[in-house]
Design a protein around this nucleic acid. Structure first.
Lengths: 184, 184
DNA sequence: TCGAAATAGTCCGAATAGAACTAGACCGGA
DNA sequence: TCCGGTCTAGTTCTATTCGGACTATTTCGA
């Protein structure tokens, strides 16, 4: 019980706890919700979502109840507790720490001197395509939630994504010019 | 031996293998090198660098030799093998897979409806400051390697970083305007 | 009626993060 | 001279995270 106040939880716990503020949900629901919302900037494995739920219950930050269903498999529903809401707010008010950033693309680019020029160009062109596609997906989502005041904060994260991928595309264009003009 | 051809290695193995293309090095050297170069887009824990080295040797992609030193602790030096170079090139030529992106900042922003407006503003302002600082660090590095042809690929990754943080700063400015003007 | 898809969840191993720890040699100041 | 700090060099341990395989049940379409 008291452990809710002392134990230090990882961010993924709060990602799950945060999703519970949208209402009572099963693990399965949260997996789906995460895929449609957090996916771009926080994508816990589904096994992790289930284990975070167990941890939240153990820490008193959520409650669990079993629901028997006739038409489909039984399930367990989770609900955030007042202690959970307090814990979430405390976490939200802490300053995020340094953001680690990881990119297989940049890693390969960094060792680009080991690649042929054609391969290097193909690498950057592929990245440009991927970014362009991601951009289009985000714009579609944007059109769907447009104007809906419930998604005020979500809209900001969406616009962050759009800015990110737009910057990617421009960078790719510049890099391609450099690589083509470089010593050709 | 043959395992070098079949076994599927994680990207971190290739990060270490790639660093070995710069010359024979100890684990300690690579930790330092990673901190000064890969750090922005690929930051393996130092314990992982050491274990990757062991794995590379076991797979025949690198060789190890002990060096006794009088003035400081003994060390082991690692060198990439021809099989290692082939493996690295094969990996470089594979298309990178979908880039997971993870941000504690965006996660908190997404749950921004649980925060007071002041906290939300402070969150974004903090992110702007962090991005601005990162930008300045990268620009300094850029000035140092400017014009040096050895860092052609590295320069591209650096410019990627600059583009990324510049986009961050602009996004923060827009977000702050939205949040301040929104319903004030 | 067969198989695919949706619902609901578990299990396991590998990869990663990150902090603490060992240990030798150095260097500067009290 | 002794003490602490720093650099070099590496190990160990735990917790976290990822990702795929696996078990079930029910529904729905061909």
């Amino acid at each position: 019980m008291g452990s809710a106040e002392t134990e230090r939880l990882p961010n993924s716990s709060f990602a799950v706890l945060g999703m519970l503020t949208f209402g009572e949900a099963s693990g399965y629901d949260l997996v789906k919700l995460a895929e449609r919302s957090l996916e771009f900037f926080w994508a816990p494995a589904k096994s992790q979502i289930y284990s975070e739920l167990r941890r939240l219950v153990a820490a008193g930050l959520a409650t669990e109840r079993e629901v028997e269903q006739a038409d489909r498999p039984d399930k367990r529903l989770y609900r955030i507790t007042p202690a959970g809401e307090r814990a979430l707010r405390r976490w939200l008010e802490e300053r995020p720490e340094h953001e680690p950033f990881k990119s297989e693309f940049l890693l390969k680019l960094f060792f680009g001197h080991q690649m042929s020029r054609e391969r290097l160009l193909a690498l950057v062109e592929g990245h440009r395509r991927d970014s362009q596609e991601a951009l289009e997906r985000l714009r579609e989502i944007g059109a769907q939630i447009d104007g809906d005041p419930r998604f005020r904060s979500a809209r900001l994260t969406l616009e962050y994504g759009i800015a990110h991928f737009r910057a990617n595309v421009s960078w790719c264009d510049r890099a391609l010019r450099t690589l083509k003009g470089g010593e050709g």
